[in-house]
Nucleic acid binder design. Structure first.
Lengths: 123, 123
DNA sequence: CTGATATTCACCCATGCGGGTGAATATACG
DNA sequence: CGTATATTCACCCGCATGGGTGAATATCAG
């Protein structure tokens, strides 16, 4: 839910191997061994990565006899994206805004020195 | 760009303190000291976190004399979100899709065959 | 120049993490 | 039953990381 889960999810996805695992699962479900053989890491290491992804609720495990079938489960990513959306204004509309005032301000009164908001003030 | 930057960005954002710093910058620019005093960590530690955020291109530093003013710079988050969007189908439209075929298939001929993507199956 | 403020640099320390190996444990198969 | 396969458990190792302290390094103010 809150902060903690975001920690778990983001740090889980921060690892390239784990992202690769997720990418692989995007194609279809797979067993631990399948995943292990798809990457240059040991079966054991793969097992650990999976556990991390499981804790982050990014994969679901279905035990079928001796096989553990992993499948994708992206809700957690949805939450992560939701958090990032807060910052959307800082990557989207950014160029648009710049372009906008540049075009609409032939005088050249460019506020290149951003307003320091509240930041500077104190002390 | 590719994989590497995603590593840097995601691991940068995976830390709660760094996310808090970003949240703080959402309100307005701030100096290193301002950020440090806003959290229970030392000035030094704050400086390090900022450097990490800088490497991830999540904050911009403008040196004004002895003050370093930090400001938000979310493009990188945009890329991260772009990566996550790949998995959108696994959290969004999930219920919608389920509901959809349930409603549009009164016969009950559900494609429950071996659709691996589902995984949810019975249990 | 001298002192105060803002940041960083250079270390130190504990912990966590990715990866590896070898031994359990569970399930399938003959 | 016994053997092979699938996963995990228990450790071990190297390294990065978060956090801390104290000493540089800049810049501002007298």
């Amino acid at each position: 839910m809150g902060e903690y889960q975001l920690d778990v999810v983001l740090s889980a996805v921060a690892d390239p191997t784990r992202r690769a695992i997720l990418d692989r699962l995007l194609v279809g479900d797979a067993r631990v061994t399948d995943l292990a053989s798809a990457f240059p890491i040991s079966l054991n290491s793969t097992s650990k990565h999976i556990k991390v992804l499981e804790r982050a609720e990014l994969v679901r495990r279905e035990v079928r006899g001796r096989d553990h079938v992993l499948s994708l489960r992206g809700e957690a990513l949805g939450e992560a994206v939701a958090w990032m959306e807060q910052y959307r204004a800082f990557w989207e509309d950014r160029l648009a805004a710049l372009e906008a005032f540049v075009l609409s301000d032939p005088v050249g009164d460019v506020p290149d020195d951003e307003d320091p908001a509240d930041g500077g003030g104190a002390r």
